[in-house]
């Protein structure tokens, strides 16, 4: 058996696919943390976050951002495709459902991962359209006109303008709610799938997962709220 076949075989197995979902999940989790850190720069003012945006775009002579984007795209693709396969198999494994269904321990979040996942995916597409793909040099306020030496995209202005719309804010907050919900099962689940949980660490890991989810949630929703409340303004 050559290496390629081994990889195929690994993917074909249930545990293999789960490991891939977990590993891609780790990539996405770390990205979320990094992304949040970047977002929070908004509280440091226009300069700070726009510097950060510029830094990202000029990393490795402008290729860095593309490496990151491709990496993230790969992670998302693996996460989604493997999950779809797993879900299909799971449905097939019990075609005839119980007439009387009950749940003993499984959390609501764990039972709705696919739904929260789809919502998050839709959100990500909207989010990318709104802040990455659609905005272009022709748009009003695209450039940061406060820097003197050169023109650069005004991340700060874009975000603040967007969150001045209450509907956009609500959409972001609700989406972050689903992300939080997804993570409340997902983070701890990563430890289980990667074989990093034990009787003794099970409870702390569970706690850590929820804390992580809450941190991402609170950090992210603070921005639209801050904009709405006028703490952050143009």
């Amino acid at each position: 058996m050559n290496l390629l076949e081994s990889i195929k075989r690994f993917y074909a197995s249930s545990v293999g696919k789960k490991l891939l979902v977990a590993l891609s999940g780790v990539v996405l989790l770390l990205f979320l943390l990094g992304h949040l850190a970047g977002n929070l720069l908004i509280y440091m003012g226009r300069e700070a976050i726009n510097d950060y945006g510029e830094f990202l775009h000029h990393m490795l002579h402008g290729t860095g951002v593309w490496f990151a984007r491709l990496g993230l795209l790969a992670a998302v693709t693996i996460h989604v495709v493997a999950t779809i396969h797993l879900v299909q198999q799971n449905r097939a494994a019990r075609e005839n459902r119980y007439a009387y269904e009950t749940t003993v321990r499984a959390s609501k979040a764990s039972r709705t991962m696919i739904i929260s996942g789809i919502i998050i995916l839709s959100f990500v597409i909207f989010h990318l359209l709104q802040f990455t793909i659609l905005p272009g040099p022709g748009d009003q306020g695209y450039y940061d006109d406060q820097t003197s030496d050169h023109l650069r995209p005004d991340v700060f202005g874009m975000v603040v303008r967007a969150f001045q719309n209450i509907l956009v804010c609500l959409f972001y907050i609700v989406s972050m709610g689903f992300l939080c919900f997804h993570l409340s099962h997902g983070v701890a689940s990563v430890f289980q799938t990667l074989g990093l949980r034990s009787e003794k660490t099970a409870a702390p890991i569970e706690w850590f997962g929820r804390a992580y989810a809450a941190f991402i949630f609170l950090g992210n929703i603070s921005i639209p709220i801050a904009v709405q409340l006028g703490f952050v303004h143009l």
């Binding site: 249930s14 797993l86 198999q89 019990r94 749940t103 764990s110 039972r111 701890a188 289980q192 799938t193």
Partner: peptide, 9 residues
């Protein structure tokens, strides 16, 4: 059989 989704039922 289906796949484990770490729900511990």
């Amino acid at each position: 059989f289906g796949n484990c989704t770490n729900q511990y039922e």
